[in-house]
Amino acid sequence: MVRRGGGAEANSGAGAGTVVAVTASERDRKGEKPAGPWRRRLHVVTGKGGTGKTTVASALALALATGGQRVLLTEVEGRQQIAQVFDTPPLPYRERKVASAPGGGEVYALAVDAEEALLEYLEMFYNLRSAGKVLGKMGAIDFATTIAPGVRDVLLTGKIKEAVNRPDGTRPSGLAYDAVVLDAPPTGRITRFLNVAREVVGLAKMGPIRSQADGVLAVLHSGQTAVHLVTLLEEMPVQETIDAVAELRAADLPVGGVVVNMVRPPLLGAKELRAARAGTLDGEELAAGIKEAGLEPTADLVAELAREAAQHAERVALEAAQRVEVAALDQPMYELPLASDGMDMGMLYRFAEMLRAQRMVG
């Protein structure tokens, strides 16, 4: 079973492109626990649809880039969500700078396309990019990746692996990027997506495809990677998070932190919340409060305010119960507030500061 997978045992001391192949279960047997920020080269961010995983992935990239680091933020679902978050034109299949971070850091972004990844693969291993373009025009590439989804996912993860390990002798680290953040598929299929290379290894016994799959597995199952999960304090997202953590642990993939997003603080004190749930709020106090707000405290208005208070108290109680469920996962937890006025770049930078303040990165 994978326990807390964080810590500072990333690839310090490893040369450019070197993979430290220590599995999650091996780290667990050694009793390694996260002693601070997640110092990883690959941060995979997943979550149920609607939990804000792209926003969290973007804020995490900014947090990692703070202090002069170069970070690559990637997506693989073809939805151009990163471009929307950073308010830029749709991302092409090439790395493009989308933001600067405090301290001289840079965030680059890439939308990984399966067809382009296959063309790149054909050129790299077989010098067949021109032939691949012909196949693309004939629809052969789309046909192949549709009938064999595993092929598509290996191409996508292979590109991510290449970015993680890409050397750059002009940089102090010897690597093109100090960290890579992947805005990954949702929790319902994250384990299959990350572990599909294992299926390919079982089919391909040798050759470039086998080497590619081996390389992907070496990165994803090592101390270089952490799979972070984004959730809301609601029953369905929390249950999907619990299920995903169990599946990731069973697959020996390194579970990272859990980011509880869109947190709303209680509007009432503990005593008032208990009274609101029990339906025993003081009507005279409610009427006095309404009058102080400059309104006429009619019986209907007082009753409506009591109903709203009861609903709020019930939601707070349900969120508290879900928070207990998340804490039971025994993974580091981080929180980001609900952006009631909507997301913009200013709020994204604030989120990055919050993640650093909570020592998710540092």
Rank of each mutant, 00 (worst) to 15 (best):
G257I: 11
K291R: 15
K291N: 09
G256I: 00
A226H: 00
A303W: 06
T231A: 14
Q322I: 04
D252Q: 00
A317Y: 03
P297A: 04
V316F: 03
A251Y: 06
L232F: 10
V263C: 11
G202C: 09
I209F: 10
A310S: 14
N261P: 07
A320W: 08
A288C: 02
R210L: 01
L318V: 09
L273W: 10
R307D: 12
V216H: 03
L301M: 13
R323Q: 12
V263I: 07
S211H: 11
A204E: 05
P297F: 09
V302E: 08
E235I: 15
R249A: 15
I242G: 01
Q311I: 12
R277K: 11
Q224A: 15
R315V: 06
R323Y: 08
E304H: 13
T298I: 04
A246M: 06
A218V: 00
L253V: 11
V230F: 01
L203K: 13
I290L: 12
Q224M: 14
L220T: 01
V245Y: 04
R264G: 01
E235Q: 08
A288W: 08
L295G: 02
S211P: 02
M262A: 15
A218N: 02
V245H: 06
A213V: 00
D282T: 07
K291M: 15
S211I: 06
M236S: 10
T225H: 02
A288Q: 05
E235A: 14
E240H: 05
A309K: 07
L268N: 00
L267W: 01
Q322K: 12
A287T: 10
A303S: 13
V260F: 08
V258P: 06
M206A: 15
L286S: 05
H312S: 09
D214L: 04
M206H: 14
V201T: 09
R315Q: 14
A213P: 06
A250F: 01
V216Q: 00
T231Y: 03
L273M: 09
L268R: 08
A287S: 12
V260A: 11
M206S: 15
G289E: 10
G279R: 13
V258F: 05
P254K: 08
L203H: 09
L203F: 15
E314R: 14
L281H: 10
A244L: 03
Q311C: 03
V230S: 08
D300I: 04
V200R: 03
E308V: 08
L268Y: 14
S211Q: 15
G256E: 04
I242E: 12
R210Y: 12
P237N: 11
D214C: 00
T241G: 07
R274D: 13
H221L: 12
R315G: 03
I209E: 08
A313N: 02
P265E: 15
P208R: 11
A309L: 10
R198K: 13
L203R: 15
E247Q: 13
A278N: 10
D252L: 07
V219I: 14
I242T: 09
D214F: 00
V302F: 06
R249M: 06
G279W: 11
A250D: 10
E285S: 10
E285C: 05
D214M: 02
L233Q: 04
A275N: 05
P297T: 11
V216T: 03
E296G: 09
E314H: 07
E235G: 01
A320C: 01
V255G: 02
G283S: 06
T231V: 09
T231L: 03
P265W: 02
L229H: 02
N261M: 06
L286C: 07
